[in-house]
Nucleic acid binder design. Structure first.
Lengths: 258, 258
DNA sequence: CGTCTACTTGAAGTGAGTCAATAATGGTGG
DNA sequence: CCACCATTATTGACTCACTTCAAGTAGACG
């Protein structure tokens, strides 16, 4: 949190896995691994750098390595045989990439910004997980969080409007401390419009239009291509179509446990 | 040996987890658990029945139980605060339901047909998985398959047309032997149009129109509400937008590793 | 055999896509 | 440091796929 990277990783204690818990209003990130587990993982890991645009691996490659992101942003993309691309997920600090791909990587992974990662040979990792069931359970937990995130994304793509999709995506960035420089309101958008569009299931023109509409309506301030800030949190939450942060809308939303 | 439940289910050897592997053209289902592992799981499990329409659990309930389906079909649904429903997944024979929900179930689960399941208390299961890392690794493997399935679904919802979505859904049913009575071509559609619509991200009218169009075009035969059969496999594969089963289309599809 | 619900069909509306023309950005070399 | 160019993003006009609204029809079940 407070430190930065000297040349080793952010917090220099080895691989790191976070999950984000959502309890009603409060949201908290928590480290899944104990210092000791991180040390044991560090014994298998080596640190690797990628430039923006580099591929960590390609769809169909034999799956040999799991990556744990130390800094930077990556995406995982699937090619649709008609030439289009789908961005399946973005990966930030503490995320796990290339996990349990059953022989071959199911998607390609590409660095969006300069990237520093731990790379873990998959067979050594598997041996470790067989020896250490508690550690393995932490991986299981992370994986189940990814699953829930993927399901949420499927719901968003299946049911939500263009405005909702883009707002939800901006919210995803906003929730990540790494995207805020020195904890101000300013949020960095590391990827280009095409990546956003391929992630939220729209065309880049539609992404642009939504962004400009939110800007015109003074819900957010869009500053160039790679920066924005939320101006009106309530309006923004309304745009996402979710319950607002401050309790103020006493509508008909008090049936099931939300 | 196979002591425990004798009056029990179809294959009377305890919980069962399958994954479906896709190697180019060939597709194979494989049992992840050894007979011994299944026996050990059976010691924790009890068998439970549900009627069509019954809820196994509701969104927000404390997560206490993992279900392994013996027979029947269930769905997992999320409520969108505007009252709409999203069907996140359908669960068939051998599937795992309610896995690792971190305190509370993230979605509701409801039986679509009469349902028989093994129910596994989550804390006992967790203890077992801590003691048995190899078994745990099988759960990890299943979970990673679910993740990939959810990502695939997200791509489908984000990028594919109505025809493709419905065809892909029908293909999902067709690939499951349980949906074929006595291995003929006839496929059962256990769920109603609303469930299909909420799963593929369309309105029920659109699902109906696509179904009728495929019927009129003699790609499939729709027999009442709950039965169909594929008449023209190549046309059907074209409708899904995937590479055809029989190699016959030598178009421009030989670039990247597909 | 009648009634209820689930499904189908048609006509009209609309949100996002497409195509095409600018306009910002940002990187590069003069 | 600025001018230039190649990219990347925005904007506008038009189209189309899917939705919406509104009947009608057919299965299922008592």
């Amino acid at each position: 949190m407070e430190s930065n990277q000297s040349r080793a990783p952010s917090d220099a204690f080895g691989p790191s896995i976070y999950i984000t818990q959502q309890q009603g209003t409060t949201r908290s990130a928590q480290q899944l691994l104990s210092p000791d587990e991180r040390r044991r993982l560090a014994l298998l890991a080596s640190i690797q750098h990628f430039e923006a645009g580099d591929f960590l691996f390609h769809e169909g490659d034999p799956a040999t390595t799991v990556y744990n992101i130390i800094s930077g942003v990556a995406k995982s993309v699937a090619l649709l045989e008609d030439g289009r691309q789908a961005v399946v997920a973005f990966f930030l600090n503490h995320d796990l990439l290339g996990m349990f791909e059953a022989q071959r990587y199911a998607q390609s992974a590409q660095a969006i910004t300069p990237l520093t990662v731990y790379s873990l040979p998959i067979d050594a990792l598997e041996r470790l997980l067989r020896r250490d069931p508690n550690l393995q359970l932490h991986f299981l937990c992370k994986l189940s969080h990814e699953l829930r995130a993927a399901q949420r994304q499927a719901i968003v793509l299946g049911k939500f409007s263009a405005i909702q999709r883009v707002a939800l995506f901006l919210d995803f960035l906003d929730r990540h401390p790494q995207m805020h420089e020195r904890d101000n309101e300013q949020v960095t958008i590391p990827m280009d419009r095409a990546d956003i569009a391929d992630y939220v299931g729209l065309r880049i023109e539609s992404v642009s239009r939504v962004l400009q509409k939110l800007h015109r309506d003074r819900v957010i301030h869009v500053d160039g291509r790679h920066r924005f800030r939320i101006l009106d949190r309530n309006a923004f939450n309304r745009a996402m179509g979710s319950p607002v942060t401050a309790p103020e809308s006493i509508e008909a939303s008090q049936s099931a446990i939300t």
